[in-house]
Amino acid sequence: MTYANSNPEVEAWLRKLGWALSRMPSPEREGIVDETRAHMYERLARGLTPAQAVEGFGRPDAYARKFMDEMDLSGALGSQRGGDLLGAIARRVHRSLIALVAFVAVLCLFCLAAGGAVAMVMEVVDPVHTGLWVGEAGFFIGTNDDLSRAKDIAGDKIYVVGAVLIAASYVFGRLILLGAVRALARR
């Protein structure tokens, strides 16, 4: 929507807003730009200068981010796919403590699941040195070169232990991601 009495400063700001919203579906993006345009021109009609009218909205990219954030979070909650949830969290790690904590927790769970998977593979390759070990250093899963320093408590049940680790990491990781995205969406 453009008008004969358009203001170049306002239109330049709105053009940048449109660019910043480019990841958004077209009708939604145009709706936001048109509504912001209507608001700014009404402010101009009430006596504000173009600089004052755009200043109230801040930088176009920062303003766009408020809509993009909401779209990102509601999209992730709608799909509930692990990749979408993790992506929404990863994009906020640098600016949200909730996202940072959730990301680190999920990373730890991923490492635990990876350890379980590696142990299952290594059990086939080197069953003597692979297991769930208890020693001076505490619990660990994987391969152990010095059998005198730790005892394998899983034996041939290492496959079960590995599968439980992977399943539990997936379930807890998903719960953490869902909880974090919901918490961010409420803010």
């Binding site: 608001h39 801040g58 909401e70």
Partner: peptide, 15 residues
């Protein structure tokens, strides 16, 4: 409220 606060909120409530 700042000028640019109202529309993201309205957008969220509409969604």
């Amino acid at each position: 409220l700042a000028e640019g606060t109202i529309y993201p909120l309205l957008h969220r409530l509409e969604k």
